[in-house]
């Protein structure tokens, strides 16, 4: 029988990297909620297990969710990392919070199993998150990967696009990813072609590494800290060193990887249905 534990064992066997499961702070990969003995009826992969995603999973008779973000609005860190994030709310706070209670009740009543799979998935030689994003954008033909590395090695972030303005490029991302809250630094009319495409939170150290590539015009990422990489890019633009930064949101940047993960899971799990269910963008913006 495919239980939560059997599923996790099979993921560990197939992930292709030594399993890392001991973070000093915050959540580790593995079962976050539910029992390891629960029989898996179906699997949903998603960026974040929103209440809507969980309802959809139950409606399609799937009780196991594999996700990047945890269900209760925290990565479990006990202290803020460089003040970027919140410390995890204490149990007495989440126990008394009506939103957390509603979600916890739904998880318990429906016997759901919620599995976090982030560090080990990201440690693979081929970056499924990057590949998913490239496919979502249909940018395969513009990819300029270092031949010595796997095509989707996490360092293979460079793309040579047809010349476009920064504003048009940002609009193209909005259209292709069906999102609204795309935040841009830089002059909309700047001409851009050489792009670094990344996912998740962009740090200054990542940016310095990417900028070693000559002629880089713009970096695309999920999110960035507004006293770290955000002013770093504002200053780069002022100094004339790059044309801009485009932040598409954590969800938009990480979600297509869920599709890659579902396809990968299907290669070694055949007993139950597996479906990628995007959580969708949380935001709208004023027009």
């Amino acid at each position: 029988m495919l239980t939560g534990q059997v599923l996790l064992d099979r993921i560990q066997k197939n992930v292709g990297v030594p399993w890392q499961s001991q973070r000093s702070d915050g959540f580790s990969d593995g079962i976050l909620h539910g029992s390891a003995d629960t029989a898996v009826t179906g699997i949903v992969t998603t960026f974040t297990p929103t209440l809507e995603v969980l309802r959809g999973a139950v409606a399609s008779r799937k009780n196991t969710i594999i996700c990047r973000e945890a269900p209760f609005y925290s990565r479990g860190e006990r202290a803020p990392l460089f003040w970027r994030n919140s410390p995890a709310p204490p149990k007495e706070m989440t126990d008394n919070d009506p939103v957390c209670r509603a979600k916890q009740d739904f998880i318990t009543q429906n016997n759901l199993v919620i599995i976090r799979l982030v560090e080990n998935w990201d440690a693979r030689r081929s970056d499924g998150q990057l590949r998913g994003l490239v496919r979502a954008l249909s940018w395969e033909k513009f990819h300029v990967p270092a031949k010595s590395l796997d095509e989707y090695d996490p360092r293979n972030v460079y793309f040579q696009l047809r010349k476009n303005s920064l504003g048009r490029l940002a609009q193209d991302l909005q259209t292709k990813l069906k999102i609204h809250g795309v935040r841009v630094i830089g002059d909309a009319v700047s001409s851009v072609s050489n792009v670094a495409l990344t996912h998740g939170l962009l740090l200054v150290a990542d940016s310095e590494r990417m900028l070693r590539e000559q002629g880089l015009d713009v970096v695309i990422a999920g999110d960035a800290v507004e006293w770290e990489a955000v002013p770093y890019f504002a200053d780069l633009v002022t100094a004339g060193k790059v044309k801009g930064l485009i932040l598409i949101g954590q969800q938009a940047s990480e979600e297509p990887g869920g599709g890659e993960m579902a396809a990968w899971l299907k290669s070694f799990i055949s007993e139950v249905p597996i479906e990628w269910v995007p959580a969708g963008e949380p935001f709208w913006v004023l027009s």
Binding site: T50, L51, A70, Y73, P98, D223, G249, Q250, Q251, F283
Partner: peptide, 12 residues
């Protein structure tokens, strides 16, 4: 951070 308040309000 986007995994905090926006997801919390979306669930609320």
């Amino acid at each position: 951070r986007e995994w905090e308040a926006p997801e919390y309000i979306r669930d609320a």
